[in-house]
Design a binder for these strands. Sequence first.
DNA 1: CGATTTTGACCGGCGC
DNA 2: GCGCCGGTCAAAATCG
Length: 288
Amino acid sequence: MRKGDDESVKKRAGDDEVSQPNVKRARVSVRTKCDYPTINDGCQWRKYGQKISRGNPCPRSYYRCSVAPLCPVRKQVQRCLEDMSILITTYEGTHNHSLPIEATAMASTTAAAASMLLSGSSTSSQSPKNFTNLANYSKTTPLYLSNSSSNPFPTITLDFTAFPTTSSFTSFNFPSNFQPGSGLLSNSLSFSSPESSTIPKILGSGCLNYDSTSTLPYHKNLINIGSSQKQFDQPFIGKNNTSTSDKLKEDSSQQALTETLTKAITSDPSFQSVLAAAISSMVGATKT
DNA sequence: CGATTTTGACCGGCGC
DNA sequence: GCGCCGGTCAAAATCG
């Protein structure tokens, strides 16, 4: 049925943001240390595909939000090549419907980050203040910033794999190989989300990393917030380990993750400016 | 029985 | 122009 005679089939793979014209192709990656096939962000997802990508033996899974039929949000789940216990979940788009509170945390984070990237990509104002702020932060914190030559889709990565969940660290660090020149992003840091008004706080603490040099073809930014690891010490058995007890554990663990996220988001509003500054600085740098 | 997952095929973009 | 690769579709299978 899909062999070219169906018009609708042609709108996939590229530009199908019909219901959200204001949402472009920002992606938000979330790195979590997780032994389970996927993390539970509170939202309901339906798997629609799986692929083995080149260079990574682990299959990448594709999910769609199944809460609302027209929800444009998609996510990709893949294990990290270097560390199989790290799960990389990439969100694309924002929900156009209401979500349960557990889902709101993650959705808010990703939506805000995406919003920031998107607004950055559509405007070109610069905010020296933010830059200064960022520079200030960078004195004490490791922020990893780098740049790629071409980035069709800006991607911001929230990294929950590194540290215990406390709100007492914020680290930035600019690598010497950061080179401006892409001009893709800017810095209107409007932490707003189309889906609700409960968003605005961003990521309490952590280290913010920008990295677009590695395997991803598009701009990739890394934000390291802190670990939500609590009980992920089970070995990863595979994708079929879904006994009842496992499910329960998975659920609670992942709820913990969501809670951690929420906490991180709400506990340290200052990180918003940090994040904003980081992105704006990157954007500003790339603009010239 | 409905919802979800699996899986092979298809399509478009991109590099050579 | 051709082949590769990532992303998506949809029928079949599986699950609850």
